[in-house]
């Protein structure tokens, strides 16, 4: 089966996020979570998600705790489950779509090339920034700085932030030079990847939209 057009993927992503945002009943949220986890096992990203959960679970727990203290168990459950679903949905969305595809999709929807280029390039540099953070942490720990995540060490994180910022500015300048010397500003750019929304994608979108409206009606009713 041919891969979906990036516009279709974007539309699905948005519909998914809106669905989670308007859901009011914990049972529906649970159902959504189940669907999301099924999707994960289908596109084989369960393992990377487990890795990402290390960061998201503490956030979800924190939201649950705040909900419980400020409101009641019902609100706490609702908020934390919604957050979990939102994070997982974004994860599925970004896993199913390469950054270039997203850029192409947004450009096809009418956004200017310079903007979509910034977006895709920013995503290209996420892993590099991750690497840089690890290198800086190692360099600072090697001269005795305590970088373990503890309250008392908060001020030491300046030693991470400053080198990271300085190096990012230098990288930005070099990046501008590199882009310039490869003709970023030339007017007649070719866009190699041609996209065409297929008939089945339109049908799929109409059906999903109908389902979405029905769901909204049911949730509100």
């Amino acid at each position: 089966m041919a891969p979906l057009d990036p516009r279709t993927k974007l539309a699905f992503g948005l519909l998914g996020i809106f669905t989670i945002l308007i859901t009011q009943r914990p049972l529906s949220l649970l159902l959504e979570a189940c669907i999301l986890l099924c999707t994960l096992s289908v596109n084989r990203s369960a393992k990377p998600l487990a890795h990402a959960l290390k960061l998201t679970i503490p956030m979800v727990v924190l939201v649950f705790a705040i909900g419980l203290i400020s409101f009641d168990i019902h609100v706490a459950l609702l908020l934390s489950m919604r957050l979990f679903n939102l994070l997982t949905a974004s994860f599925v969305f970004f896993r199913s779509m390469r950054s270039e595809e997203m850029g192409d999709g947004l450009r096809k929807l009418g956004l200017p090339y310079a903007f979509t280029f910034i977006l895709t390039t920013a995503m290209r540099y996420v892993p590099l920034m991750g690497q840089k953070i690890r290198l800086i942490m190692d360099a600072q720990r090697s001269r005795g700085m305590d970088m373990r995540p503890r309250i008392g060490n908060v001020k030491n994180f300046l030693a991470l932030l400053v080198p990271l910022l300085v190096q990012s500015f230098v990288l930005a300048e070099h990046l501008a030079l590199a882009m310039e010397s490869r003709g970023f500003q030339m007017k007649n750019r070719t866009f190699r990847r041609k996209y065409r929304m297929l008939f089945r994608e339109y049908v799929l979108l109409i059906v999903s939209l109908a389902l979405f409206v029905a769901f909204v009606w049911w949730e509100r009713g």
């Binding site: 270039e100 995503m123 070099h174 590199a178 003709g183 030339m186 866009f191």
Partner: peptide
């Protein structure tokens, strides 16, 4: 020109799109 900083020089997300970038700038056919 090949710059010293390869992190900046390679700004696309795959090697193929990296090579294609300059060619796309020139407006060649796909």
């Amino acid at each position: 020109m090949v710059l010293q900083n390869t992190d900046a020089q390679l700004f696309n997300s795959t090697v193929e799109s990296e090579i294609a970038f300059g060619l796309e700038s020139l407006g060649l056919t796909t």
